[in-house]
């Protein structure tokens, strides 16, 4: 009975939403603020990737909140799972391919991760995408050797200082008499690697923070799983 009502309800909601959504003007959005941002952002922010201008400039505090959410989730997961010391040696190691493949791919993942972070203001990508790849780079060895552990103390230092530097860059602008998180420094040529003022710095902070946060989340989960 519950299942039937649930299905009926879900179907009804879907039908209603579809009816509403089909009334929308698909393919030609109003772009009230989108258009203005597109035309103003090369001068105001100076990043070739306009999504980056929005993420770090126009909606910078959203990104800060997002970092805080990741941090909160990682702290909460740490609280839940605790830090038990696992006994090494009892776990089965990964196979040959996983073990050596992981070691082989590690430097490439690092390079790609940092490349994506550094070019976040020029190409699709940025701190979040690059940070995820960094986390993967450090998590891969854990899969190959389940007993191995990440250095949580180093991770938490990176976590702390990457997050803090994002806010401190914002506060620096405030100290200069401007608004919090206002882009500073020289914008330079549009499309150059060193351009767009503080945006690349912010993205490096984001990338490190995301990488450290995800790595600690994943290693926490992996360790707890190997406890069982």
């Amino acid at each position: 009975m519950r299942k039937l009502t649930g299905l009926l309800f879900a179907g009804g909601l879907g039908f209603m939403l579809l009816a509403i959504a089909s009334g929308l003007d698909f393919g030609s959005p109003p772009m009230r603020i989108g258009e203005a941002i597109q035309s103003a952002s090369p001068q105001e922010v100076g990043a070739a990737n306009i999504v980056t201008s929005v993420v770090l400039g126009y909606r910078g505090i959203d990104t800060l909140g997002e970092l805080a959410i990741l941090f909160a989730a990682a702290s909460a997961a740490g609280l839940v799972l605790g830090r038990r010391h696992t006994t090494t040696g009892t776990q089965r190691k990964g196979g040959f391919v996983l073990f050596h493949g992981g070691a082989l791919i590690f430097p490439f993942l690092l390079t790609i991760g940092f490349y994506i972070i550094f070019h976040g203001h020029l190409t699709p990508g940025g701190g979040f995408q690059g940070g995820v790849i960094l986390a993967a780079a450090f998590f891969l060895p854990l899969l190959a050797r389940p007993g191995a552990r990440l250095h949580h103390s180093i991770l938490s230092v990176i976590e702390a200082f990457a997050g803090a530097s994002f806010i401190l860059i914002g506060l620096a602008a405030l100290g200069e008499g401007q608004a919090f998180l206002q882009p500073m420094l020289n914008q330079d040529t549009l499309g150059a690697l060193i351009s767009a003022g503080t945006l690349p710095l912010l993205y490096i902070a984001v990338g490190l923070k995301v990488g450290a946060e995800l790595a600690s989340l994943l290693s926490n989960l992996a360790q707890t799983e190997s406890e069982q």
Partner: peptide, 17 residues
């Protein structure tokens, strides 16, 4: 429009956490 893309990036990361 760049704004929804920025929003969706935020929403995805929130979801992952």
């Amino acid at each position: 429009d760049p704004v929804p893309q920025a929003m969706v990036l935020t929403a995805i990361v929130i979801g992952v956490g």
